[in-house]
Nucleic acid binder design. Structure first.
Length: 608
RNA sequence: UGCCCGAUGGUGUAACGGUAGCACAACAGACUCUGAAUCUGUUUGUCAUGGUUCAAAUCCAUGUCGGGCAACCA
């Protein structure tokens, strides 16, 4: 950023890569690479498909895929789908779309997938039966779409057969048992560090009962499979934790095949192992699970190197909520229009708002990776978005709250085409023409009848430049019966346009405008932050902090070239904000305000 | 309560026993046909107390504060 080299406009085909960050996890990986510990670094991003991905997941995605990218590795996308009653195929699909979008043009070649329907390979390794599910990677999203070979994410549910077999092995080892305690009793026994009365069942009885659990002989909640570790361990997760529970429920991937489902702790480490993951990176709340993660893998006499778990602090961002439960509540109670409402911190919401994948990635890199639970200031996100959009957005003129201006010395019926620059930050973006005529619209805020000090815009008897056009002077204010200003009558210095005799004349202010006759109307959705306080869920009732003005919808007057706006481009309405075309733009133009420009004047005006 | 983890300006981070640096924010100025961007400058920090050491943000001890876990969720 402070590097002057970056200011040279880059070929847009070669995006400037964010500098490779350094953090404690990357340090560990780098050390492992240096010592040649693994043939290839292999990470994974393992969301449960029970909600939409949010910006916190983006941090995790950028970490896991970033490591794969920086160390020549692979990162598997895996659905952690061990609880069928909470999950849905809708979420599986949205997760894939969001991951593809965030990875596009950056790390899509590091995305580990598998052939559709493929089960783990079963073979003998060092005399032991082993399961392995290798990734297919190195293809771009478009290659994948055009290929005859269909690829799909990994699913923990792909391994239910193997995980079941591992459970049987544990029973045979005497390291797991079937427990008939009720949930409440189990809870009480574990809390008090007391052994279950079923702890010493014979291997044969455990095997029989577990087989019958699988066959669906017992109702939900009547029996579980438990690990036999230490009943009174200081770490609760070692007090004979649950490995399997009975759930008479169909699964979105495996249908009615299973009546028992593995718990997270049992499924996750084994899924990592089966996929050959080297670095299993998760958030801090799983720190206390790590001994169990290791215990399970070490108890199974596995053939290949074991994965290891590393933890980092999840993202908390000011002025928003991040938990799936709360986001779900916003959607279900229609407090927002959906998961992709541009005010939501979901990846699809942020995307719809107009933020680019590059900006979101830059943000993830800027905030760093630590084990400290801090709250990141939204201004960091906002700055990252502005920085990206400033570089790439097409400049356009649009008037959000119009007031009519008549240039009295400009001939009626005359129209001239003036040159406008598409992006001063990017000379190769070229220019365009804007029609100028006698009747214009300017921004209502850009005129003050009684101007405050240092007001550089239009005022009675004052001069201002119309961007790309003439210097005008306000001669007369027209009001209606109620005293509202309806029109301004101005004269123009007709020699002051670009290339004209007085074009070098300096006036303090420059304002935007559109020709009244040529302007096109657009619906403009002005989004603001969803909550009014930095920590909406600090006092337990986040909904009372909802910002009642988080959305304002207006009709704007836009320069005619905006008729051709497209979904890929980003726009800066000069002096106002950045905008992106919304998907609702079918019969009319709809723009979402991504983020405002910084406004030093508004700040100064507010202070005085 | 038990166990685990953490603490560097307002915020987020770097420094791996040897000059406390970066980004955001804030403030001031320069420039400006965007009160944007850009440029220049300024303000602000090692949780506390001991110890080890020529030297401590860094190592040790104690304390304080904060977070997490204690689901047949992940």
């Amino acid at each position: 950023m402070s590097n002057p080299i970056e200011k040279i406009p880059a070929d847009p085909a070669v995006p400037v890569a964010p500098p490779a960050p350094s953090d404690f996890i990357r340090d560990i990986v780098a050390a492992h690479v240096a010592e040649g510990r693994y043939p290839k670094i292999h990470t994974r991003f393992p969301p449960e498909p029970n909600g939409y991905l949010h910006i916190g997941h983006a941090k995790s995605i950028c970490l896991n895929f970033g490591i794969a990218r920086e160390f020549g590795g692979v990162c598997n996308l895996r659905m952690d789908d061990t609880n069928p009653t909470k999950e849905d195929i809708e979420y599986v699909e949205s997760i894939q779309a969001d991951v593809n979008w965030l990875l596009g043009g950056w790390a899509e070649d590091r995305l580990g997938l598998k052939h559709a329907g493929k089960a783990p390979e079963e073979k003998m390794v060092e005399g032991k039966k082993d399961f392995f599910q290798p990734p297919v990677f190195g293809t771009s999203e478009s290659e994948r779409q055009h290929s005859a070979i269909k690829l799909e994410p990994f699913y923990a549910s792909d391994y239910f057969d193997q995980i079941y077999e591992f459970a049987v092995a544990l029973i045979k080892n005497g390291k797991a048992f079937v427990c008939d305690l009720t949930p409440d009793q189990t809870d009480e026994f574990r809390r008090n560090g007391k052994p279950s009365p079923f702890r010493d069942r014979s291997v044969a009885e455990n095997l029989d009962l577990f087989t019958r659990m699988k066959a669906g002989e017992f109702p939900d909640g009547t029996r579980v499979l438990r690990a036999k570790i230490i009943v009174d361990a200081p770490n609760i997760w070692l007090r004979d934790p649950l490995l399997y529970r009975i759930k008479t429920a169909d699964h979105h991937q495996t249908g009615a095949k299973w009546r028992i489902y593995p718990m997270y702790d049992f499924a996750h480490c084994l899924s990592d192992y089966i996929e050959g993951i080297t670095h299993s990176i998760c958030t801090l709340e799983f720190e206390v699970h790590r001994p169990l993660y290791d215990w399970i893998l070490e108890s199974l006499d596995l053939a290949r190197p074991l994965p290891h778990q590393y933890e980092f602090a999840r993202l908390s961002l000011g002025y928003t909520v991040m938990s799936k439960r709360k986001l779900m509540q916003l959607v279900e109670e229609n407090l927002v229009t959906g998961w992709d409402d541009p005010r939501m911190p979901t990846i699809c919401g942020i995307r719809r708002r107009g933020v680019t994948a590059q900006a979101l990635r830059n943000f993830a890199y800027n905030i760093g990776i630590t084990k400290y639970n801090g709250i990141t200031d939204v201004s960091v996100l906002e700055h990252t978005i502005r920085e990206d959009l400033n570089k790439h957005a097409q400049r356009r003129l649009a008037v959000l709250r119009p007031i009519k201006v008549v240039i009295t010395n400009y001939p009626e019926g005359k129209v001239e085409e003036l040159n406008a620059i598409n992006n001063p930050e990017d000379p190769i973006s070229g220019g365009r023409k804007m029609p100028f005529a006698r009747e214009l619209f300017i921004e209502r805020d850009d005129f003050q009848e009684i101007p405050p000090p240092k007001f550089f815009r239009l005022k009675p008897g004052g001069e201002v430049r119309l961007k790309y056009a003439f210097i005008i002077k306000c001669e007369e204010i027209i009001k209606d019966a109620a005293g509202n200003i309806t029109e301004l009558r101005c004269t123009a210095d007709l020699d002051s346009k670009m290339g004209g005799a007085t074009s070098a004349r300096k006036v303090k202010g420059t304002i935007h405008w559109v020709s009244a006759a040529h302007a096109v109307d657009a619906e403009v959705r002005l989004y603001d932050r969803l909550f009014t306080v930095p920590e909406p869920d600090a006092d337990g009732d986040f909904k009372k902090h909802l910002n009642p003005h988080s959305l304002e919808v207006i009709t704007a007057k836009c320069e005619p070239s905006l008729k051709d706006a497209n979904f890929e481009e980003r726009y800066q309405f000069e002096r106002l904000a950045y905008f992106a075309l919304d998907k609702d733009s079918a019969s009319k133009l709809v723009f979402n305000r991504t983020i405002t420009l910084k406004d030093a004047w508004a700040k100064a005006a507010q202070k005085s």
